[in-house]
Each structure stands twice: as C-alpha cells, then as structure tokens.
Amino acid sequence: MSKDVWVIIEHQDGAPKKISLELLGRARELAETLGGTVVAFVPGAGVSNVAESLGSRGADIVYAADHALLQPYTADAYAQAVSQALQAEQPTLVLVGSTAQGRDYAPRVAARLGAGIVTDCASLEVADGHLVATRPMYTRKTIGTVVFSSGGIRIAVVLPAVYSVPPAEAGRRAEIRAFQVALDSKGVRTQVREVRAIQRETVPLTEADVIVSGGRGLKGPENFALLDALAKALGAAVGSSRPPVDSGWVSHDYEIGQTGKTVSPQVYLACGISGAPQHLAGMSGAKYIVAINKDSNAPIFQLADLGIVGDLFEIVPKLTEAIRQAKGRA
C-alpha cells in the first residue's frame, strides 16, 4: 500500500476535462497531508498530449495507459485497465469525477478489487488520520458524513465544481510512464455504435460557471430561444425545471433537480421557475442564485440572492442586450 493519491483522468479531444483538473488540485493538497505523491492515470488511445499537460496541473507521475480498446470509452475496458493499475500500484486513495463515465466504471472497479467506494463526494478531507467525505443524501434534504475504513484502496467519486481548478504552473513537469494494459477484444463486450454530440450545449451543465434555466413560466418550446440568446451572451449553459421536459419542450438532459442533474455553478439564473423542493434538490448548491418570477410569493425568492419580481418575457431580452453591451465595453 502506497500513500499516493491517484486521479483517473477523463479527457476529450486530447485535453483533460475540467473535473480532472479540479481533482488534481485537490489530490495535491491531500497528498501533502498523506505524505504521498500525486499520480495521474490516463486511459485511452493516443493519450500523450493529455499526459504531457498534467505536470503543470499538479501531477508528479503520469501513467499513460495507451490501448486501442480504450477508445471509445466502455465500462468494460476502463474497469479492467483501472483495476489492473490499482492492483499493481496499491494507492491509498483514488479520485474519480462524478460524471457519466466515472459513475459507470468506478463501482465496477470497487467491486472487482473489494475497495471502499463513496460516490457524490461534496468534500473530501483527512481528519484525525481518517479519510472523510460529505455528500448530499435524501434528495439533498440532508448532508451525510461518511468515513472510509482505514487500509486498502479507497475510491472517492467526487462531484464536479466543488474544488476549483488550480492555476497551471508553467515549467512544472511530471515523470511520464507507460502503463501496459492487458486487454483483449473478448473482454470488451459492449459495442459503441455511435456517440451523438448534442450541439446546443456550449458547456455541459455540470461544468458550467453560469446556468440560465427556464421553467413552466416559459410557456412553450419556442421561448427557450430567449434563454439560448441570453446564455450565448453570458457564455452560459441552458437548463430547465421538469415541466418543460415533461411537456416535450426540451429533452431530459436539460432537467435539473431530483430526477435530473445536480449542478453547482457560480450563478444560477432561474426564469419562470417557482422553486419546488424537487428542483432545489438539483441547484441549491449554486454559489449565487438569481430568480426572475412574476409572483412575489414564489418560493424561489426565499433562497435567491437577487430576486426580480417581473415578467420574464420583458426582462430576459433586455437583459441579453444589456449583457452584450456590457461585454462589448469590457
């Protein structure tokens, strides 16, 4: 068992994803407390560019696990590759992003190795020699504290946007090593037929700093264009409450809340959303909440940092224009 802290790197188009950089930043801090080094593990095919970039982000050692069967992503291939590496190196702690990928393969790895696993970590600390995570539970009506047992490999699946991306340190380099993964095509049973990109999204909701979100108050699918324009001006992502999804105005991947996504942006701008508990379950972790609602009694105003009582159809287009102007000047 080593004292090292590993981060399994998620990447796209030759660059690490934001969540991976957030985790490397946290891994640095934890490794200092634990007295180990930071190891970035990069599964994929042709990962040298990704691997090269990670020293400046806090990695001491980078394992490039290059294998044709690791591209495109499958749970089968990733679970084997990551398990093989963890088995060989026995780090004390492994950080994985809570993303569609991380949530898919990490429990398989834990089951294969008999490792401890805690998902949806909203914080991760070393306290009195114990590794302790907090996580939202009971549809965010409570925050649980979970303590990992000592000994063995421990896997923490960490929510996006809880740790900030540390600034890149130009000139800091990691030692890059190749990790030989043993994989054969029989072991990769799922076949990826295609990955369809959803063009509308500038940034994924779970990574966005600013989210503009619409509810039933938007009245129809055509009015989401108002939010698209505002989001474009702000560089924001567009989300929704559940009624627009159930009415077929937008697809389910817009949905924020108990049965949708959990988001933690810097700013959440709710337009025509009343603020039902099931919606709050997905967005009350935002740093700042701004709400536009014509009903001054809407529950969303009880937690909005800035509450605007008014007609969104009047305010949103004017806001878009004002932000364009403000950005133009900047």
Partner: peptide
C-alpha cells in the same frame, strides 16, 4: 469499507434582495 457517521441538514440559504 465505509460508514455513515453523521447527518445534518443542508446549509440554509438566506433570501437576498428583492
């Protein structure tokens, strides 16, 4: 390999300016 040791209510948010 892990145990839930404590539950607390989420931090309460305050209403801001209207």
């Amino acid at each position: 390999k892990s145990a839930l040791t404590r539950l607390v209510p989420p931090p309460k948010r305050q209403a801001g300016r209207m």
